[in-house]
Amino acid sequence: MSKPETPEIPGESELVGRARKGDRDAYAELVRRHSPRIFALCLSMLRRRESAEDAAQEAFVKAWKGLRRFRGGAAFSTWVHRIAANACQDFLRRHSRAREESIEGPPLGDERRLRQAANALGDQAAKVEAADLVGKILARLSSEHRLILVLREAQGFNYAEIAEILDCSLDAVKGRLKRARQSLEENMRHFSSRGGV
């Protein structure tokens, strides 16, 4: 049997193996593959694109430094998400004062505008406004709740993977997810006078 002519796209474990031996090209490829999701996670946590990009970069730099400690059994994606989640929490701790002003939530004067946007969430024309609203509602949740909701609903990790990322038990994942959903649904109701969100 002859081999196919086209060069094979290296698999994840091969790239990780090469990167562990110091192959920078292999690591750059891993970064290209995983950065959109890591950036999305950081953006959900930090809201500002510059902050999110900075935290995401920090996570990949830390991952490179810690590659030798990375156990092959776990998925690289799960592992990097764990590092990124910690980088975001560190960022929020460092900028806790700024967070109160810009991340924690909109000033009360904005509520009318937000309510209008909430009711128009399904409307294509209000897409940008709606995306802004999503960020603002997420910002009203605790960082712990925001993180677990994004990992489950946006990133699509299952309970076992979330337990690994958050370094907790499966029961803790279930409990935390339940409380986070309650908090999110309350906030969505708060912004939607007719339950339109």
Binding site: R24, Y27, A28, E29, V31, R32, R33, S35, P36, F39, A40, L43, S44, A52, E53, A56, Q57, F60, V61, W64, L121, A130, A131, V134, G135, I137, L138, L149, V150, E153, A154, Q155, R181, L184, E185, M188, V197
Partner: peptide, 30 residues
């Protein structure tokens, strides 16, 4: 509804994100 809401937030993040440029930034930082 909550799930759709969270998905839309992630979808907005991908818009305008350049993985190639980001990767170069990470490697030069390293």
């Amino acid at each position: 509804r909550a799930a759709e809401f969270l998905l839309s937030s992630a979808a907005a993040a991908y818009e305008g994100f350049d993985a190639e440029r980001f990767s170069r930034g990470v490697m030069s930082r390293i």
